[in-house]
Amino acid sequence: MMTPKSESRKEQDKDSNLIKAINAGRSDLFHLLVKRYQHKLYNFGLRMCGNKHDAEDMVQDTFLNVFRFLNNFRHESKFKNWLYKVAASACLQRKRVSKYAPEPEKELSWEALTGVIDMNKLAETPRWASQPLENVLNAELSDHIKAAILALPEKYRVVIVLRDIEGFSTAEAAKILGLSQTNVKVRLHRARLFLKENLEDYFNHVTSKAPSPK
């Protein structure tokens, strides 16, 4: 039976062989690399930029840069990690020139995040945290979470997207972003607390709007 670890290794090997072939002159095979990652990159772009136009531009910019600099890829990390490094950089650059969505404030202070937490109010686990996930996650909530992620300052958003949505480890996210692992962990925790508070507000609002039983 194939374990997740061996699956991951197989994926890495698959990229590695393809890249070696492209770098050896088979640039006509580059479209296979595009096909393999275009969907994931596009969704990464949507989470980061918030609109289809910027996400598509980011995907195109990323593949252009990867094509130009693929010869510099030394196989010292997974190709996917290098690809996301290029993509994250393209996102951050694109955001600076985009006409869409003004950038929210740049910091999430610990004092501001923890100042709103009232542990004494926590009498029982709310339904959104106790019911099976499939009973909770619907299209409306999904849209709300995406908006909440976009409301995060960029440097926190990119960390939570890489760690909790794209599934990179702390060490991988740190390498992709050129940060220390401690810095990634601090930003991730603050981003999660921000989202948790946002979800609590959302569900309090939804619950208060629901008609009371007769």
């Binding site: 275009q38 969704n43 959104w128 996930l133 909770v136 607390l193 979800l199 609590e200």
Partner: peptide, 24 residues
Amino acid sequence: QCTIFLKMLQRTIDLCKYLETRPL
């Protein structure tokens, strides 16, 4: 209280993990 807080934080992470994706 910490148990409840932990469950809410874990659920926040799980909700992010299973967000729907959009096709190109």
